[in-house]
Amino acid sequence: MAIGVKATPFTFIVHALGIAGAVMVLVWTIHFRGGLAWEASNKSLIFNIHPVLMLIGLIIIGGEAIISYKSLPLKKEVKKLIHLVLHAIALVLGIIGIYTAFKYHNESSIANLYSLHSWLGIVIIVLYGIQWVYGFVIFFFPGGSSAVRSESLPWHVLFGLFVYILAVGNAAIGFLEKLTFLENSGLAKYGSEALLVNFTAVLTILYGAFVILSVLALAPPEDDYSYSAL
């Protein structure tokens, strides 16, 4: 399935929203929450790494990886490599981001895996890893036969979009969960920080929506290997 409009305008919006989202989460964690730290007496600084890596890594870089076939005027093999590498970076940053949440909980004597957000997070990162390994083996090295690749591509795309939509939804849940904790601890519900967190969550959803629109839109004419299988 594809919509009858060109993907290029959507991909430009994706890039712009990605930059805005990265800036917003950094402003939140650095300006409002005190900064980022791997080791600190203030354990909240450790937690701050989590939303930064999950949004910039899994959501933004992951989204750029998804639209790479539609946004880059390059040869098929080059785009395939970029797609693979960007997803690898997103996966690694996602794993580190999840680890920092566990690290923060453990050092703060907080229970792990008690919320829907944490459950979905583990499921998503596992599925993301499976998707990446499958894509590497079938489409990159050693690579399946042309028939296997042709039959696998639509399912690879659909499964990838399913995992990505889960990730975007879970990121929104994560922002809501953290903001609820902060507000219960005294943060002003209509203050600038609360508004920033809510708008970051909204932007995350918009970013995901335009990634999907980019995938469903028409690839550039010179593109001979894209998500047209949809």
Rank of each mutant, 00 (worst) to 15 (best):
G94E: 10
V92F: 04
P142K: 05
G143H: 06
E64D: 11
A90F: 03
L127V: 00
N48E: 03
Y128E: 00
V78S: 13
S118D: 10
A111M: 13
L127C: 06
L86I: 05
I125E: 05
L91I: 02
V78G: 03
I89Q: 07
P73R: 08
Y99N: 01
V52G: 08
S115G: 09
K79H: 08
Y128K: 00
I56C: 15
I49E: 07
K80F: 10
I98W: 12
I60F: 11
I67K: 02
Q131R: 05
S115N: 11
K103T: 12
V52K: 08
V92L: 15
I82Y: 12
Y104T: 03
K103Q: 13
V92K: 02
G63H: 12
N106W: 09
Y134P: 10
N106Q: 14
F136W: 09
K80T: 11
Y128G: 00
F47G: 10
Q131L: 01
I124V: 12
P142N: 07
L116G: 01
S71W: 05
I138V: 15
V52Y: 09
L81Y: 04
E64C: 08
L55Q: 04
T100Q: 14
V85T: 06
E107A: 15
G97P: 11
S146A: 13
L74P: 01
G63W: 07
I67P: 04
L113Y: 11
L74S: 08
Y114K: 15
Y99P: 05
G121L: 10
A88R: 02
F136Q: 00
I130M: 09
L84C: 10
E107R: 13
A65R: 04
F102C: 11
H87K: 01
Y128F: 14
V126T: 03
S71A: 15
I125Q: 03
G143Y: 02
S109R: 12
Y69Q: 12
I49C: 06
I110N: 12
G121V: 07
L84Y: 07
G121E: 06
V52F: 13
G144Y: 01
S118T: 11
Y114A: 15
I98F: 13
K75T: 04
G62Q: 10
K80Y: 09
K79V: 03
F136E: 00
Y99V: 11
L74T: 06
S118P: 09
